[in-house]
Design a protein around this nucleic acid. Structure first.
Length: 608
RNA sequence: CGGGGCGUGGCGCAGUCUGGUAGCGCACUUGCUUUGGGAGCAAGGAGUCGGAGGUUCAAAUCCUCUCGCCCCGACCA
């Protein structure tokens, strides 16, 4: 494309030439001649042409034309200057992006309409989905995010479902303060160790004017004891428990709180790890260890059911190793899910705290015999991270996929029409349909914008993850039907079928739609489970493991139980033991690393 | 805290090497034609080029200093 011509040739020929410079083309027009590109010439004159070109700058004015005006250039340049300032040449800026038409429209399709695909760049895909579906956005504060209405609606539905399950099992909600006296954190040794590095500390209680303008902490407002912003609430809550619990009759105490917490993480990712996040933390106190352990497993079962039945995310349940457990707990149990890149995500934890915190905070009760005993405690939580899990398990290259049971909007109705008369007729039917579906308890949106085309709406609602789209056009109105398209197929596609399209009779539409939503919920779970199974391997050879871990997935392997072998594996492969699964069958074997005997396989994976 | 990258209309970027009227695509506004898979044409609005100094007739571009963000590592749900 390098078209270079000397200035003298330009002057002599008095016709239009194109100079190549960087990514720009300079078009010089002379009076009375047509525009034409000069033939590719030798590059020899390049340096000279450059200096001439700079001269040209000084000759006068270079009006810049917008690319779209290019087509309006007269075939023959009139002898009068076309430009207001009398210049007889113009500059056209043709950057890399303003290439020939076909290329541009393809680039447009690729760069601006579609999201990054999972195979191109998984974490970019995840970001694209979250931002484009308007689930969340970055905030002015580094590491923090704004949860937008689309994301928050999902969280509200999760809260509703979980809260119901907690209440059903005898838990009640309360709220404890955001600030914790700094000294509280140091009462449980392991706990400090675990959280000290990521605590935000409040040291002042007032701002004052600062020299040179602005505001800063007022020097005379230093707090006597600094406060920390809760990274979790064990300490404040148990300080209160020690006040409230006196007798075995006060037990069990089963509290939960919905709250925000702050952990000053070094690296953050939307929903998966942010400096501030929303969660639920349950804190219970019991009279005996077997009772508190019963609570731990009961809650874990609630988490498992919620993940599988509501989120349609299959999870493994199990116990964390000592290296991975909660700081201050005797034992940590967890649910672990597999993302589409084969990495594991801890989706919820339920801890057996034993009497560790009871001793640190003096949480004691008198038993039937009048003797004093320390309580047995548990704590458990799930966070907005679940939203990240949900996205990474179900969504695809079209965008978000929300399982029907958690969706705020179950279906969107897209009306299709050609003219005003048709529009009126179709909209009338669409509105009636919306009323009937909404009345049956479903979240329905009628997208009657006429500023965008139906195709645009299809793509937009798919991006937002709405489970079902209902299309109503003139043909459908005549036949008393609508076309339902599930976000993800609920059955095998037929020959020549690009997308699953179901024709639903408008009569009984609520029932038909509900059935389709049920099918979709099941299909999503089945698909996720199948993915996990296809990416789970049993493995005995460590060398093989080191190679295979690169491709992701869950690896069921024997492990002797020593922290040394666990650390070695983490060092060498970045894989951790996600859990010692409950559902694993007992099976004697030899540790993958050291060969020492092992009773069952544990699950290794790289994790978020 | 180490290594890398980037700050230019709302978003994504070109232009910086070689100083010379701030551009492109998307989005937005208006009008007409469109509408069963991301519509077309036309006309418009919108940027003190992250900030502060300096060099120059002239700085997005060169020099100095700053601030911020993103990515990759060490920590974590």
């Amino acid at each position: 494309m390098a078209l270079t011509l000397s200035m003298s040739a330009f002057q002599a020929a008095s016709s239009a030439y194109i100079f190549f410079r960087s990514k720009r083309y300079w078009v010089f027009c002379s009076p009375g001649t047509g525009l034409k590109a000069a033939p590719p010439a030798a590059r020899a004159g390049t340096a000279k042409a450059r200096s001439k070109h700079r001269t040209a700058h000084r000759i006068g004015f270079l009006p810049t034309m917008k690319r779209r005006s290019l087509s309006r250039l007269p075939a023959r340049v009139p002898s009068e200057s076309p430009w207001p300032n009398g210049a007889r040449y113009c500059k056209i800026n043709l950057s890399a992006k303003t290439a020939p038409r076909e290329d541009r429209s393809m680039a447009k399709e690729r760069d601006e309409k579609a999201i990054t695909t999972r195979s191109q760049d998984y974490s970019q895909w995840y970001q694209d989905v979250v931002l484009r579906a308007e689930m969340a956005d970055y905030s002015p504060v580094k590491g923090c995010m704004v949860i937008r209405p689309n994301g928050y609606a999902l969280w509200e539905n999760m809260q509703k479902a979980l809260d119901g399950m907690f209440k059903q099992t005898g838990h009640v909600n309360a709220y404890f303060p955001l600030f914790i006296p700094m000294s509280f954190l140091s009462k449980e040794a392991e706990h400090v160790e675990g959280f000290a590095k990521e605590c935000a500390v409040v040291t002042h209680h007032r701002l004052g004017a600062v020299e040179g303008g602005g505001v800063g902490p007022a020097p005379d407002s230093v707090l006597e004891e600094p406060l920390i912003v809760r990274p979790t609430s064990e300490t404040v809550i148990y300080a209160m428990y020690s006040k409230w619990i006196k007798s075995y009759r006060d037990l069990p105490l089963l509290l939960n709180q919905w709250a925000n917490v702050v952990r000053w993480e070094m690296r953050t990712r939307l929903f998966l790890r942010t400096t501030e996040f929303l969660w639920q933390e349950g804190h219970t106190a019991h009279a005996a260890h077997e009772e508190s352990w019963g609570e731990v497993t009961k809650i874990l079962e609630i988490y498992r059911r919620f993940a599988e039945e509501w989120m349609a995310v299959p999870v493994l349940t199990g116990v964390k190793t000592d290296a991975e457990k909660f700081a201050g707990a005797l034992k940590t149990t967890c649910i672990e899910a597999m993302m589409q890149d084969g990495k594991a995500l801890q989706a919820g934890t339920s801890h057996d705290l034993g009497q560790n915190f009871a001793k640190a905070f003096d949480v004691k009760f008198q038993d039937e015999t009048g003797g004093w005993q320390y309580c047995w405690q548990t704590s458990w939580g799930v966070s907005t991270r679940l939203i990240g899990a949900l996205i990474m398990v179900h969504s695809d290259d079209q965008g978000l996929v929300i399982p029907p049971r958690l969706a705020a909007t179950h279906a969107v109705i897209v009306p299709i029409y050609r003219d005003e008369a048709g529009k009126a007729k179709v909209l009338e039917v669409a509105r009636a349909l919306k009323e009937r579906l909404s009345a049956s308890g479903l979240g329905i949106v009628l997208d009657d914008r006429d500023t965008v085309s139906p195709g645009f709406k299809y793509n937009e609602w798919e991006l937002r993850g709405v489970p079902v789209r209902l299309e109503i056009g003139p043909r459908d109105v005549e036949q008393g039907v609508c076309v339902a398209v599930p976000r993800v197929p609920t059955r095998e596609l037929r020959e020549g079928e690009k997308r699953q399209k179901e024709t639903l009779a408008l009569d009984g539409a609520p029932e038909h739609l509900k059935a389709l939503l049920d099918d979709l919920q099941k299909a999503l779970y089945a698909r996720a489970l199948q993915f996990r199974e296809e990416h789970s391997y049993t493995i005995d050879d460590y060398a093989q493991f080191q190679a295979d871990i690169e491709k992701g997935g869950f690896f069921w392997a024997h492990w002797c139980g020593s922290g040394a072998c666990e650390a070695k594996i983490k060092d060498e492969t970045k894989a951790t033991i996600r859990c010692v699964p409950f559902e694993a069958k007992k099976e004697p074997g030899a540790c993958m690393v050291c060969g020492a005997p092992s009773e069952q396989r544990v699950v290794f994976a790289r994790a978020y």
